[in-house]
Design a protein around this nucleic acid. Structure first.
Ligand SMILES: [Mn+2]
Ligand SMILES: [Mn+2]
Ligand SMILES: [Mn+2]
Ligand SMILES: [Mn+2]
Lengths: 226, 226
DNA sequence: GTCTATTTTTAGCCTTAGCTAAATCACAAG
DNA sequence: CTTGTGATTTAGCTAAGGCTAAAAATAGAC
């Protein structure tokens, strides 16, 4: 009944392609140029790789029509994401990495660790539910908790919120937010959401207020406090 | 004065070639077939790779004459060995790996971690001097402690010794020794060293005696107790 | 509906790191 | 010295992953 042979681990290139397609496509399809830009690779390289990924049964792809993950592709993506997020958690909590540096190191390590390592690390870390950026960590069974928070820009002025996640990987952005304590776990009061330019002004627990441009406000996810 | 450009990290293949040449050549030169066998690679692949390693300034190599490391090659080898041994220590002490399983995982991870990771890990581990097999861990400055122990087979009968190192990477061998407690840190009394076949008989602290064949006895390194 | 701008693909090339088979060298035995 | 054998190298091939330049398809603007 087995349909494949020994399930040789995917190369790190393939792992990254699948992961990016998962991030980009969600349940739909991702475009060639979009994926290429995220991976800093020429669009032509994408076309070739999408063919290979299809042969491997990881994506379903039709010329000029974009790519989406197969069930198996989605499973592989979630395994990569689990490894990545557990590693980031370890780097921050035990090796003293700063918030903005964990991603780059995890991006390499995620391709080198075995499933055995991953599960032992999860155990060592106490099976965390979220990574340092507040992103949910998929379970070993491939289940990813549904996101129940929403971008800061969608809150009405006056609302009190709890930061759950910062959905951004750029180190300078993370450094900026980290310095100001705008990190998961923080409580904020939304003072103003300006229609005009999307700038959001919030006040933190110490009464300090912060202005955040539209894109930045969209990358900070929050939950309303009762 | 700088002679090289950005010092892009070496590929994992190159890292392994350099490390094996270091292990095999010591201060002399290693032969093509010897290196090839250790890396499970065809001899022809070696010849090609030795050319590349020479161009990279890592080995000095003359056709039909074997290869030896340059000063830079030796430095790279020691950096790899440091990473490898620190990772093994982490796997055993914190992730609950068994003695015989750490090597394989470290063999992959050693190519994925940055210098920053390595030094933070060393700090986390408390700057251990030896890995789980008792091998000395090179310093961040590239200094490797001189080995002051010697193989069990060279001890005279009646001598009391302290096991410092097990110089063997085969998992079944390590499992066998581990089960019997013949690991670094143990004290033993040498009962007999048989000229005939090199078999060494030792007695451990609990009075249990163990017979070890020549090759095995040669891979257990000890120091004489006062 | 047609046309143009933007995507996307194709074609052809490159490097790394392997392989096999065939040629060549070194060395030890005679 | 000559020669045979084992070690080593050369030649030629392969696959993965990239790239650039040119061709083709799609989609949006008119
Ligand atoms: Mn990340
Ligand atoms: Mn990655
Ligand atoms: Mn090892
Ligand atoms: Mn290795």
């Amino acid at each position: 009944m087995g349909e494949s042979t020994a399930a040789q681990p995917l190369s790190s290139s393939i792992g990254d392609y699948v992961k990016i397609i998962w991030e980009l496509a969600g349940s739909g399809a991702a475009s060639t140029t979009e994926i290429a830009a995220r991976l800093s690779v020429a669009p032509a390289s994408l076309t070739k790789m999408l063919g290979r990924l299809q042969e491997l049964g990881l994506v379903s792809y039709e010329r000029y029509r974009g790519a989406s993950l197969t069930e198996r592709g989605r499973a592989e993506a979630l395994r990569s994401v689990r490894r990545h997020r557990l590693i980031e958690t370890f780097l921050l909590e035990h090796l003293g990495y700063s918030w903005q540096d964990v991603h780059e190191e995890a991006e390499r390590l995620e391709h080198a660790v075995s499933d055995n390592f991953t599960e032992r690390l999860a155990e060592f870390l106490g099976h965390p539910a979220r990574d340092p950026h507040g992103a949910p960590i998929p379970g070993a069974d491939g289940v990813l908790a549904a996101e129940d928070s929403f971008p800061l820009g969608e809150v009405m002025a006056g609302g009190r919120v709890h930061v759950t996640r910062v959905h951004n990987e750029e180190a300078p952005v993370l450094a900026y937010l980290g310095e100001r304590g705008l990190v998961p776990g923080r409580s904020l009061e939304v003072k103003e959401v300006r229609e005009l330019d999307g700038v959001v002004t919030v006040e933190d627990e110490e009464g300090v207020s912060h202005s955040l441009g539209g894109p930045l406000a969209r990358s900070i996810f929050v939950r309303l406090l009762s």
